[in-house]
């Protein structure tokens, strides 16, 4: 019996009888992080990190959830489980599973760079490593985030000088807060779309510090926004909501903005390459650091990345899952239960 199996409900540990990030309703689910394609509705029991819990509960409502701290060990039917920072969003974890000396790691979504907001990624040694490869092509190489934020802030400054509103989209959970935390508020105020502000409120109430933001609401005048920054989810970009802002410059922050074609297809003025997923170098670094010989790739450019790993000498396999990486995050399912 393998320590983990791939079933139609999700990744399954038969010895412990638990699933990790399952996409169909199950009895017991261990959750890597709060994005909609990883923490789904309908499980009878959830286990996630203490810092991921508030948002998951906010999204899923009255669920039966238990929390665990990073590094803390929990034994289920003799299998040792522990959660380790994945650096993807606040509270995101890689889940380490150990049984009779065999170790697996399910990394969920992750990134190597410390973004100053999510708990910084830590490599975890294992025999078998389950990884995403959303950006598993050598064309995806992120710049250090400070350079990207410098670009964003100077774009904001320039828009302000031209009497424009800066509207920047990034998914509501994770990207939005990471951006807010790095904006230069000496330039102006930060306004937020309701979907973003709802998440902000949840995160602040768990004691995490976040720069001040103001929710966009009916009572505000068009000219209040001029020279200021508005953060919204990607879905708001094409909607009527955006018309509130007179003369706005539109920006998109996403890893997909790496490609010129993608930048041009989006009806935005600027594309900033900013992702909460590992880039090509990061993937290879993480896989090497895990010390694993067996690699399972779940979502992204799986065919290509598997072949690359096989040629590099790994026992690499593709697992068909229903995770969607930054695609889901672009569509931003967290919006569905918001007003605005």
């Amino acid at each position: 019996m393998s320590l983990l199996e791939f079933r139609k409900e999700g990744i399954y540990c038969p010895q412990a009888d638990v699933y990790i990030d399952p996409w169909r309703p199950v009895k017991r689910a261990l959750i890597t992080h709060g994005h909609a394609d990883h923490s789904r509705w309908g499980h009878q029991y959830y286990l996630c990190t203490t810092s991921a819990m508030p948002v998951i509960r906010y999204r899923l409502g009255d669920i039966n959830v238990e929390t665990i701290d990073y590094g803390e060990k929990k034994s289920i039917h003799g299998v040792q489980f522990s959660f380790h920072p994945a650096g993807h969003i606040l509270g995101s974890a890689q889940i380490r599973i150990e049984y009779k000396g065999e170790v697996w790691v399910v990394s969920g979504d992750y990134k190597i760079e410390d973004d100053g907001f999510a708990e910084a990624y830590e490599p975890v040694q294992c025999h078998s490593f389950i990884t995403e490869c959303t950006f598993g092509l050598p064309i995806y190489k992120w710049k250090p985030q400070q350079e990207v934020f410098d670009d964003i802030n100077s774009w904001w400054q320039k828009n302000k000088e031209e009497g424009k509103v800066s509207v920047l989209s990034g998914y509501s959970l994770g990207k939005a807060q990471r951006i807010i935390q790095h904006l230069d508020t000496s330039i102006g105020q930060i306004y937020t779309h309701g979907a973003v502000e709802n998440v902000n409120e949840v995160i602040r109430s768990q004691g995490v510090k976040l720069q001040d933001t103001i929710r966009v609401h009916q009572g505000l005048n068009k000219k209040d926004y001029i020279g200021n920054m508005v953060i919204c989810p990607p879905s708001a970009m094409g909607s009527a909501w955006i018309k509130k802002f007179k003369s706005a410059s539109l920006g998109v922050a996403s890893g997909w903005m790496m490609l010129r074609g993608a930048r041009r297809r989006r009806a935005a003025d600027r594309g900033f390459v900013l992702s909460d997923h590992v880039d090509w170098e990061g993937l290879n670094t993480a896989i090497e650091a895990s010390g694993a010989e067996r690699i399972f790739v779940t979502h992204g450019y799986t065919d290509i990345f598997r072949r690359w790993l096989a040629e590099e000498g790994y026992d690499a396999q593709i697992v068909e899952t229903e995770y969607e990486g930054e695609l889901t995050e672009m569509s931003d399912k967290t919006d569905s239960n918001e007003e605005e």
């Binding site: 993608a262 992204g300 695609l327």
Partner: peptide, 8 residues
């Protein structure tokens, strides 16, 4: 597809 839609 290509680019942003390469996974679709």
């Amino acid at each position: 597809g290509h680019g942003r839609r390469a996974n679709l």
